[in-house]
Write a protein that binds this DNA or RNA. Sequence first.
DNA 1: CTGAAAGCGCTTACAG
DNA 2: CTGAAAGCGCTTACAG
Lengths: 338, 338
Amino acid sequence: MVTIGDVAKAAGVSRSTVSYALSGKRKISDEVREKIEEVIRSLNFTPNAGARALATSQTHVIGLLARFLNDEFAPAMLQYILGVTDRARELGYDTLMVTEEDGLGALTRISRSRMVDGFVLLNVAENDTRLDTLRAAPQPGALVGLPSDTDGLDVFDLDFEAAGQLMVDRLFELGHREMILVSQPEHVVARGGAYVWRLANAARNRAADRGAVVHTYFGASQQPAIGEDLNRMLDTHPGATGLLVNNEAAAAALPSVLQHRGLRAPDDISVIGRFSDDFARTFSLPFSAVDSAAAELGRRAVEQLVLHIETNVTEHIVELIPPAIVDRGSIAEPRRRP
Amino acid sequence: MVTIGDVAKAAGVSRSTVSYALSGKRKISDEVREKIEEVIRSLNFTPNAGARALATSQTHVIGLLARFLNDEFAPAMLQYILGVTDRARELGYDTLMVTEEDGLGALTRISRSRMVDGFVLLNVAENDTRLDTLRAAPQPGALVGLPSDTDGLDVFDLDFEAAGQLMVDRLFELGHREMILVSQPEHVVARGGAYVWRLANAARNRAADRGAVVHTYFGASQQPAIGEDLNRMLDTHPGATGLLVNNEAAAAALPSVLQHRGLRAPDDISVIGRFSDDFARTFSLPFSAVDSAAAELGRRAVEQLVLHIETNVTEHIVELIPPAIVDRGSIAEPRRRP
DNA sequence: CTGAAAGCGCTTACAG
DNA sequence: CTGAAAGCGCTTACAG
């Protein structure tokens, strides 16, 4: 393998000069620098990452801890991941992706062995067991998902409270007074998916404040259960004119459920979901929705993480991205009763 | 940070003894070994990965090059990725996930800087521009996807030819004589997705051999285009009794298309797809299908890669996994014409 | 503007 | 059975 020594020899300079030419950390005469650059090109030299990491204590790798809970909707995870890997690369970092069950063990192992400069945690739960370890680690950490204790960490999430309010407001203003909210399954909440009840409570409270009602339900995260759930909800509340869907599987199942019942959105029922634009596109969901902002959250987490890695800022931030509705034409004034 | 020197000092031995105790590469007296282990635990020592990599030229990291073409069906990619990361971890490797557009540049950069011990390439095209670079790299490589030239690389893929034959055979034996095959979009083929025509040609030829006919079509990979495509095909071939679906978006769109037309599988039409079990479960697709074996392919690629990394086998293999049908009750004898 | 040398934290022949 | 020392390929004070 070609080393910095080979380059130095071929260019007729010392290894330190090559190193400085590479880093730009001191002035090198044009003549020498050009010679070095030429040699680097002709020898195809790239510095050894391990050696560099050893010398600088910087790996230029970030650790991405992703949890794939088999009852959550895997496709949605991909957008967060791509947000992270793409932005990391733009900032000069590669991404070590960790998917093991034992996230805590992985975090400990990777942190102690100094394989990465920092961590991004996806799918963070209300009381995430990984957080204490992360706080005690020498590397900084950024989260996607809002835990109860955000101390010492940068946190990014969609503002689910505002999302719940926005969904209700939008329908309320069109005239809807009775709505159904389908949330993620109860076990997602039980496991610490606090965003589920953040959105649900906000929606219910906002409706109550304005003199409307939102019937809130947990729904299965897979077919056919979720389809049956939806039918049951619609049967139970024949007067409901609006459907809020905070559950990707439910959103994906909804077109056929509506079709089966002979309902059309927005003519017969207004539908507003909460999912990513990419998700909507892939499954052709004809429903207006609050965008999950998955890629953006991943990108923001990386940016803030890199800021902590590369500078000595000590403040941490909690950033809740304001919800935005992507209009796909599925909400309108409630149908006039005949 | 705690180093091997700290451990040695606390245990009252030399650094080499600690190193050998860690690696087991030479006999250490029980007494000394136990003392060392105790110190390691109490100091929370984990060897520095960069230093180890520098000394051994082994990173215990594999590079995973994944391409996310925005017109391909992203959710399906996840299964391959998890197969790779999970199996890698079981074998003692972490995974550097690379998603940049410029896969060739990434491969070059990561290979030269010695960040990984080997590469797994996903989504390999017929004439993949990354392969020559991979062959010239000092690290071994394993592919998921069959290129035209497999020289010097380990290759894993579903046997799409056998899959096409199997799909036709299964329907033929039930009595179907006219079938429609919906493939991935033409531009996937144009880009080198050879598996599309491997399956299509095999299906068509097998049908011809047996005196049946398969109408083959490319279909869009997104809604609503794919829904219209499906309707057009069904309109064009009213006599077709079997539908073969080698296109995930089409499979996902099919339930509502069938419902719209008042068709049921298998009563009115037999349907057999090619997608992953996980995909079927997530979207509740009630169609029998040849399993993509995504996770298995990812796992096999890693296993073979690690074999090359850790031993000096020089033979390379091309492994085409035989297709297997997962029965979901969507195929039966063709309906008797009234 | 440039070079010689120390040091990052490991592993592994070499020596006993 | 164990230790002293060289070396992996970089970076960066130190010196000129």
